[in-house]
Simulated scan of single mutants.
Amino acid sequence: MIASNRAALRRLSRIAMGVGLAAVLAGCGGGFGNFFQGGERSQEATAEMHAQERERLPGSGQDGTIWDLFTNVDPPSTTVEVNRYIWNAALEVLDFLPVQTVDPFSGVIVTGFGTPPGGGRAYRAAVLVNDPALDARSLNVALMTQGGPASRETVRAVEDAILTRARQLRIRDRGM
């Protein structure tokens, strides 16, 4: 009984290896044809193959190879991973400011001028959440008053309030 299970397991592993090898060779686009036929590829053929690979651009409609799975061809400015707790906390803490622009894909919140509750000075904010970590480095806040930039202490207080609220939201979600 045990011997038959081992034999079946060996057959299954050979089949899996054969399928994997076939997938790898198919993904190479036939580039190993000359190698398996015993011939060598000329320098011209190699240069032409490299030129064709360089012409392949993402979204051009051309088929890629299996190796394209292991490359990051997206430009780094396409999307930014945003920490959802910091994002929601920033919207909650700055809810007294009228929102002008919100882009969760790039992590940017821009507001118009507004006065905080109990305050007399109007502020305008620009917030950038640029990392998925719940960390102070993931948050950049810029505050402006109608007279110019806000003080460092005010900016620090707003950042601290956003990060504190983000931690509270995370704790609430995890049921801690």
Rank of each mutant, 00 (worst) to 15 (best):
A157I: 08
A51D: 06
R174Y: 10
A45T: 08
I171H: 04
G107R: 01
D68H: 04
F96H: 07
R170I: 13
A142Q: 07
F36R: 04
V108F: 10
A22H: 03
R121W: 14
T164N: 15
R84M: 08
G107D: 04
I162G: 00
R170Q: 15
L69G: 08
V129L: 02
L21W: 10
V24M: 01
F105I: 09
S13P: 00
L12C: 01
R137Y: 01
D63L: 14
D95Q: 14
L69D: 11
R165G: 01
T145Q: 02
E159P: 00
D160T: 13
P116I: 12
P149K: 03
F36I: 11
A89G: 12
I86R: 05
D131C: 02
I15N: 12
G29Y: 06
I171L: 03
A51P: 00
I15M: 07
A89F: 15
G33A: 13
W67P: 00
R170E: 15
D68S: 06
T46M: 02
G112A: 13
G112P: 11
V93L: 07
V110W: 06
F113S: 09
S151D: 15
A3T: 11
A3P: 00
Y123W: 10
A161Q: 12
V19I: 11
R156G: 06
L21I: 15
R172V: 09
A51M: 08
L169T: 00
V108N: 13
L134W: 11
L97T: 10
G175W: 15
V127T: 03
I2M: 09
N72F: 06
I66P: 00
Q37P: 03
A122S: 15
V99T: 10
E55Y: 03
V158M: 08
R124K: 06
V80C: 02
D95R: 09
G147R: 07
T65V: 03
F96M: 04
F70T: 14
N34H: 14
S77H: 10
N88R: 14
V141S: 05
V110D: 13
A133I: 03
G61R: 11
S106F: 10
L91Y: 11
E159A: 12
R174W: 11
P75F: 00
T71A: 04
L128D: 05
Q43E: 07
W67N: 01
V158S: 04
D74W: 02
P104N: 10
R152G: 14
A166I: 15
E48Q: 06
F96Q: 13
Q168K: 10
G107S: 07
S42G: 10
N34M: 09
G114K: 02
T65L: 05
T111P: 07
A3S: 04
A7H: 02
P132G: 04
L97Q: 03
L97P: 00
D95P: 02
M49W: 05
F113T: 07
I171A: 05
G59C: 06
L94D: 06
P116E: 15
T115Y: 08
D103L: 00
P132H: 06
E44I: 09
A23G: 05
Q52F: 12
A16C: 07
F70C: 05
D95C: 11
Q62Y: 13
E44S: 08
G29L: 13
E40H: 10
P132V: 03
T145H: 01
N83A: 09
A166G: 15
R165I: 09
G112H: 05
E40K: 14
V141G: 02
V129F: 02
E53C: 11
V127M: 03
R14S: 08
